[in-house]
């Protein structure tokens, strides 16, 4: 198939995507990027072009660096745990001898049925000083359980737990879908050769699932990196900025602090940071296709 005819053939298939994306993705995005070069000064001279001033100030803002650090911790912990736990649960639920397998498969997805704005409220309530978690901890003998959301050592951790809970069903269902499309005869052959569970996992499951796991991991990372609603509801980045995320800080600047330009600058920096895993991912994908 020649390249030119391929382009002509592909065009009608990708047209709907092009229309939607160009209209409500490219245009607002360009506008948003330009915003970063404007200072707002809402109570003074008003919005005006300021070159790279927002970026210069950003690099001197310690909350920015703190947010960046937290954002990396947040993204890595959420994604790593979600993928490992998700794969583990998916494999368990893929075992033929699990009783009520179908019921469990449905149950594991349930956290996804609750809108994240509500989940965040539930988790804030859960992690409360005398909330259900601490009541249970006291019941099983921990006399002085921590105040999760107001102890800087735990505040980010509590948010991570909540976000893993929110994100886990998605990862699990994706991986379960992948596991089910694996050809059974390879396993049968391996079993005939006497391969055990561990061997089968490392020599068959993992290599065959590699692309899907990578896709899920990269996309979840990007998604998690920009996600702030959980932290916004649970701690608002506190106490003392201990759980501030870059994405949350950008959001607060845009809507709470009257600093849209500053927020856009934070957005651009996040985007640049996210480009690093993206480029590796895209490169890897194209090499694989060749």
């Amino acid at each position: 198939m020649g390249k030119k005819s391929d382009t002509a053939k592909a065009f009608p298939y990708i047209l709907p995507v092009l229309i939607v994306m160009i209209l409500i993705n490219v245009y607002p995005f360009v506008r948003g990027i330009l915003n970063a070069f404007y200072a707002d000064k809402v109570f003074g001279v008003g919005r005006h072009f300021c070159g790279f001033d927002n970026f210069k100030e950003l690099f001197q803002d310690h909350i920015f660096w703190l947010g960046l650090k937290n954002n990396v911790i947040w993204t890595l912990s959420c994604v790593v745990v979600e993928v490992i736990l998700g794969l583990f649960i998916a494999m368990l639920l893929n075992l033929p001898y699990i009783k009520f397998r179908n019921v469990h498969r449905t149950l594991v997805l349930l956290p996804w049925a609750i809108p994240p704005v509500v989940s965040a409220l539930i988790w804030r309530y859960f992690f409360g000083t005398s909330g259900p978690i601490n009541i249970i901890l006291k019941g099983i003998g921990f006399s002085n359980p921590p105040s999760w959301l107001i102890n800087p050592g735990y505040s980010l951790f509590a948010c991570i737990v909540a976000n893993i809970w929110v994100g886990l069903p998605f990862v699990t269902v994706m991986l379960l879908g992948g596991l089910q499309s694996l050809p059974g005869d390879v396993y049968e052959a391996a079993e005939i050769d006497g391969a055990g569970i561990v061997k089968k996992f490392f020599y068959i499951t993992l290599p065959m699932m590699k692309d899907l796991i990578l896709t899920v991991a990269v996309l979840t990372s990007i998604w998690t990196f920009n996600m702030f609603d959980i932290v916004f509801t649970m701690t608002r980045g506190g106490p003392g900025n201990s759980s501030i995320l870059l994405s949350l800080y950008a959001y607060q600047n845009a809507f709470g602090y009257f600093q849209q330009g500053y927020a856009a600058a934070i957005g651009i920096i996040s985007l640049i940071i996210l480009m690093i895993p993206l480029i590796f991912y895209i490169k890897g994908r194209f090499n694989y296709e060749d």
Binding site: T7, I14, L18, M21, N25, F29, L219, F255, A264
Partner: peptide, 25 residues
């Protein structure tokens, strides 16, 4: 097709666009 890499890259990158950059536009 022509521009396939651009489209793929863009679709992936657009995942990383923070909502705050988009919402006002």
């Amino acid at each position: 097709f022509k521009g396939k890499n651009l489209l793929l890259g863009w679709l992936l990158a657009s995942q990383a666009f923070p909502g705050i950059l988009l919402v006002i536009g």
